[in-house]
Nucleic acid binder design. Structure first.
Lengths: 335, 335
DNA sequence: GTGAAAGCGCTAACAT
DNA sequence: ATGTTAGCGCTTTCAC
């Protein structure tokens, strides 16, 4: 099954293969007649131009790298969905790179991506405290780069993210409005920017309401159901006076609900709850979870648009884009 | 920032660039001395061979296509995770192709993938009743192809899947052992092989226990929480005598639980439940969900292994691989 | 408007 | 053990 090449098309259409190239690239300087004939032959032979050969000479692969860390993370999975749709719309593909098992592999993956001459790289993974020298190095090499929810202080980086401070604020204010004063918080892992920002929103809401911040009402966890469950038990043990909880994601909120039930606390009568993410389960767990919805697919979409702009060399106007969140009221807040 | 090429390395190492090629491809016929010198220059210059140029001549891109339909589907997302890890282990990348929005785009995506000369294609999406001519055409063109949970009757296709008949059997038997006779079922959408197989397992279990199959105990849904919720309400309306339910996935099971609560049925006292998938939420919803766990990452892993074997031209011994499921007992079965 | 020539960066014979 | 000669399939000058 020999592949049909541009030369085969040229021969069959009785033109030079350069003319065929003009036709498939929609160059203006081809006679209408020739153009039609060539297209017809292309159809007949089922010719497909080799993206590889094109890439070799044009230095453009129309392929982007996609770095992700964790497919069980709802936020980033949705970002990828949005990114993929937008990329396809503009004729790009993503090469998938998941560092699921080992974040330390990232530099190596990046090397392999540049070896494959991707036109740009999208980071759909969180800010952590991992070493970031390899990313700084990419920036210095002027590799088009956009990140979602990943910030590198001091580096000029195009970032698309959600306004987590405002999200934390909304979540906490919702509980304050219900009259709560002893509002606990279960956070994600230390070192994440989103964790700090949501916590900042939480503190901001408290201070606006004149409620002093009480560190004994805060527990760290790791985003998982199990960790939320355990954190809630710790929280109940050390601060039994708690009447409301802001969990920094829905999984931990649902885990916490289990712990609350085990401790005999009714939801929302004894303890009200707000989560974060609006995962599909949030509307169907029992009781259904009040939460902060984030425009995750939109984040991926915007990030990809900016990335492709960078690839095309057009100056990207904004370096940082923050999208807004929305409070979704459900039963855990007594609705 | 001009890219360093093989020629630059050759010049700096004072050898022909063909020798450099030998070095980077680990050919035996290079003097140890030369080899060392070349490697050193490569390091110094930060040379990265162009995968594009290599691909052009060698006809191998070490890139695979990945067709997926829906990132909110836990099964396939996990398959992708397993596939990605295995691919990386063997030096391959996946080009991501999600037909999320419109399954009808698939033929076009496939065309774009072959244009990019992927070495093979993995289908991580379900069997549906969509037109499959474009896939048959790929098979005829001898494009290496492996599918997960996607069957094309009559075509010789390498498929990796889970034993859904046995899964349905285990789920139903678990309920029968608890003494239930009026066992309902909420299925996924008609036309899916996994839906038919799980239903077959359900019927098999009933018949083995001497319980007649009762069509009024079955409702179709579409895998979503909402659809499970609605199906359960319909089921309760038409067959109130129901005392147990097998939901063909966990999302529908959790949706059904909400409907049962609304109808005043206690779980598991009035109605026992078994789901399918063991999504992370299953262990944390209330009550926690008995379910069938599937080795999803393993499916992706095995599928990728087989695909790469096909790419390498080594005859793949088995054309169909079925992995086994496991019953996870939790509170919805009164444990 | 079209063809001829050159070259992208590399691998694969074939020499020596 | 190393260099030389081709050529992968295409785009891009530069002629005509």
């Amino acid at each position: 099954m020999k592949r049909v090449t541009i030369q085969d098309v040229a021969a069959a259409a009785v033109v030079s293969y350069q003319t065929v190239s003009r036709v498939i690239n929609n160059r203006p300087d081809v006679a209408e007649d020739t153009r039609r004939r060539v297209w017809q032959v292309i159809e007949e032979l089922g010719y497909q131009p080799s993206a590889i050969a094109r890439g070799l000479v044009s230095k453009r692969t129309y392929t982007l790298g996609l770095i992700t860390a964790d497919f069980s993370d709802y936020f980033f999975t949705q970002v990828i969905v949005g990114a993929e749709v937008e990329a396809r719309k503009q004729g790009y593909f993503f090469m998938l790179c998941s560092t699921e098992r080992n974040p330390a592999d990232e530099p190596e993956y990046l090397r392999l991506l540049t070896e494959r001459q991707v036109d740009g790289i999208l980071f759909a993974r969180p800010s952590t405290e991992e070493d970031s020298r390899h990313i700084v190095s990419l920036i210095q090499q002027d590799v088009p780069l956009v990140t979602t929810a990943y910030w590198l202080p001091g580096e000029k980086l195009t970032v698309v993210d959600v306004d987590n401070i405002d999200g934390g604020l909304q979540a906490t204010e919702c509980l304050i409005e219900l009259g709560h004063r002893k509002i606990g918080m279960i956070t994600g892992p230390a070192g994440w920017k989103s964790v700090n920002d949501r916590a900042e929103g939480y503190k901001l809401a408290l201070s606006r309401a004149g409620i002093p911040f009480d560190a004994s009402l805060v527990e760290y966890a790791d985003w998982s159901y199990q960790s939320g469950y355990e954190a809630m038990h710790r929280l109940l043990a050390k601060s039994p006076q708690i009447t409301a909880l802001f969990a920094q994601n829905d999984q931990m909120a649902i885990g916490a609900m289990r712990a609350l039930r085990e401790a005999g606390r009714r939801i929302p009568d004894d303890v009200a709850l707000v989560g974060y993410d609006d995962i599909p389960a949030a509307a169907y767990c029992h009781p259904s979870l009040t939460t902060i919805r984030q425009p995750m697919q939109r984040v991926g979409e915007v990030a990809t648009q900016l990335l492709i702009q960078l690839v095309n060399g057009s100056a990207v106007e904004r370096k940082e884009v923050l999208l807004t969140t929305e409070l979704i009221r459900r039963e855990t807040c007594g609705s």
